[in-house]
Simulated scan of single mutants.
Amino acid sequence: MKIRLSLFVFLISTYSLYGQAVKEDFSDDWARLSKYQKENDSIGLPRKGEKRVVFLGSSIFEFWKQKDPDYFSNNAYIDRGISGQISPQLLIRFRQDVINLKPKAVIILAGSNDLAGNKGHVSNETILNNIKSMAELAKKNHIKVILCKYLPIYEYPWNKALKGTAEQIISLNAAIVTYAESKNFAVLDYFTPLVDERNGQKAEYTTDGVHPNLAGYKVMEVVTDAAIKKVIGK
């Protein structure tokens, strides 16, 4: 009896240790490729005639699907937003979360989080270089490119010490438009329909001055559908 009990305890202890040993460590996954990896595998390639569009960005896109999931499920739209991500993380994810899904078009919304945590190492040029790399990868893989004018932001509620946010967003948008025009890429303007007199977001369209509420997303859906129709038809 004692031998059997000892063997049972040994097996339980071994199982516990083994379970801990095989627990996967994602500390090296800076760009969080693991977030959508399984979902990408389950989606597979587009069906014949499917006009798939991938939305690549950060919290603006991630929260969009949470607030209005039907907008994505009723269309061939795939949301690949991850809250808090900066443009180099989007670039790292670009092959897995865009190219490998074989969409007709990609919508790239990048730059705000780069500016929000600005320690003096981020400029329009560094953001734009990452956007350029993503756009060039898309073009190389026969994916239509839609670049976004970022939503208006007067200030970041979590970093109010950062001054001149509205002007930084306007300047970044101007740089994105100039680049897009030089390469004949489409521009999706999220700035104009949401902007108020301070160059921030209209109060009726936002939860915190940065992220839209459902009404704000409904406005974005109108201009998004128009841009997609212009680029790939719908």
Rank of each mutant, 00 (worst) to 15 (best):
I127H: 06
D189F: 09
E24G: 03
Q85Y: 15
V122Y: 06
K67M: 15
Q85G: 07
S112N: 15
Y18V: 09
S171N: 13
I3D: 11
E221N: 15
T178P: 00
M1T: 09
F94H: 04
G209L: 02
S27F: 06
K144N: 14
D208W: 00
L7Y: 01
V195C: 05
N141D: 03
D25R: 01
L11E: 04
S16D: 00
D28M: 13
I3W: 01
F72A: 11
Y217Q: 13
V122Q: 10
W158R: 03
Q96V: 10
V22M: 01
Q85R: 12
E39K: 03
D29S: 05
F61Q: 08
A116C: 12
P212S: 10
S171W: 05
L101E: 11
E62K: 09
K230S: 07
V210Y: 06
N184C: 06
A203M: 07
P88I: 12
A227T: 08
V223H: 02
L90S: 13
R80Q: 09
N173Y: 08
L128H: 07
G19F: 04
K104M: 10
T165F: 05
K51C: 06
D189W: 04
K35A: 08
I153A: 09
L172N: 02
N130C: 10
V98E: 05
A166S: 15
V222D: 02
G84V: 11
A203K: 11
L194M: 13
P103T: 15
V53L: 02
R198C: 12
V219L: 04
I60A: 14
I12V: 15
E197T: 14
S16P: 00
L147H: 11
L115D: 01
A76R: 04
M220S: 09
K149S: 13
S171H: 04
E167I: 13
Q85I: 06
N173Q: 04
A180L: 10
N130P: 01
K102L: 11
F191I: 10
E167G: 14
S42K: 13
N118P: 01
K102F: 14
P157G: 12
V219H: 05
I169E: 01
G117I: 01
I82E: 14
N40L: 05
V219Q: 12
G111H: 03
N130G: 07
S59P: 03
F61K: 02
V210A: 04
P103H: 14
G164Q: 10
L109Y: 14
K2C: 03
W64E: 05
R4D: 04
I78C: 12
S42H: 00
I86S: 01
R4G: 14
